[in-house]
Design a protein around this nucleic acid. Sequence first.
RNA 1: GGCGCGUUCGUCUAGCGGCCCAGGACGCUGCCCUCUCAAGGCAGAGAUCACGGGUUCAAAUCCCGUACGCGCCA
Length: 488
Amino acid sequence: MTETASGIRTRFAPSPTGFLHIGGARTTLFNWLFARRHKGVFVLRIEDTDEARSTAESVDAILESIRWLGCDWDEGPLDAESDRGPFSPYYQMKRLEHYDKYLRQLLEEGKAYRCYCSKEELDAMRRLAQLEKRPPRYDGRCRLLTERQGRDLEASGRKPSLRFRMPEEGATLVPDLIRGEVSFENRLQQDFVIRKTTGGPTYNFACVVDDHLMRISHVIRGDEHLPNTPSQLQLYRALGWQPPLFAHLSMIMGPDGGKLSKRHGATSVLEYKQQGFLPQALRNYLALLGWSTTDSQQLFSPEELIERFDLAGCQKNPATFDPVKLAWMNGEYIRKTPVPELVRQAEPFLKTAGLASAEGPALERTVALEQEKYKRLADIPGLIEFFYKPVEYTPKAMDKVLRTTGTKETLGGLAERLSRLSPFEEKALESEIRGFCAERGLKAGQVFHPLRAAVTGRTEGPTLFLMLEVMGREMVVSRLRKTIDALG
RNA sequence: GGCGCGUUCGUCUAGCGGCCCAGGACGCUGCCCUCUCAAGGCAGAGAUCACGGGUUCAAAUCCCGUACGCGCCA
């Protein structure tokens, strides 16, 4: 038993019907932060009761996403089949006996009843209600069915679902750690289905049974679940269980105010990984979507995030996802990463670009030269590839900088001087080149810019002298000569 | 349609009755630094606190409506 002193247990319970999206990642993060903050336990549970849509690939993708985010879980699945923890299994489809047990109990105690209405009948009922401008809720017509009537219906081939008998009067109060107390009138709630005609439990039911059996203390989830909560609370009551504490997080919206979706860009956590976002950066950004401190601090170390996180700082209103701010934050994290570590993290991107084992200066040196410019790891190859590939002049470099009067002679002079310079190091390079400027009566800019354009093909790039040092004499001189030839 | 939730700069947010003619961050603009691009520093533009009523000596903050957005039930 992974019981801890705090007794705090949170969970994230995804349906494996797709990848882990940004909203799910934020929910995961908040559950994880809350558990870690209070020295509690973070549980992962797979809600795969939608057999038609659940896949093992989704389970794998979700687990990979959460691992990458760094939200390690204490109990739950290890992969798409096996799991670990005192309340195993953590897959709902492997827990059917538990649901059956409590389903039977509710039925025996008269707290649930069989409903034989067909889909067609329910649809008709709904249409009629809508026509008469009544709320389209189930009218409870099967509540009073006798056992005999039930048997007859079953004999005629009907399969029953099981419905929970909601109280007809009063209100259900949902205490919410973020929103305060929210009240729902019972007479407006319907007798919801807890077991489908196919025999499987519904989401609301399985969720309650599992949260109870797994001793979840805090249910932190998206606020789309708030309207389900009174039903769940009644279930806890009917089963004689102490409900957990609830905290409903506001949703994450796209820039147009609608649900965050594909047309707003990447929505899958794995896509962010593939673009070269650092997990700490994504975590930091996601934490700030719906949570903040009173001092509006923006950047938090991983430890700090855990120390400072609290539910009281959570926002009630929805937040719009801002990729631009995420990119800024990622840049901040990249700048803080020690270069050897950065190179290691960037390896997949360098490999894809063909730079991982290319001839040329050490990656640690070239990557370091541009560190303050990367917003994503995927930006790295593009900014350093000129060290490893033949120079290609941009139109601007060629027309505005290289094809200017006197430039050819300047480059020729530089090639001559630099081919003899020793040591070929930043300081020596700077004084040599500045001396060259003075001798020829040229302004620094008249020399520096063509020099950069000649050896990189670009008008922007790393600081000049250190870059030349990293390139080395051979590459610098040969590129100067090549440019002179290109200028004809 | 019913129910529920929400509404402070373009965006994320601070604010929980006087400190706010509203503070921070991203982005934007300008300046400085400078061999370019960045990074960094400084400055600036940007919010009649959704709207309308109350309560109060005093409201972004409390109450009531309205509008709009979102969610849930289908």
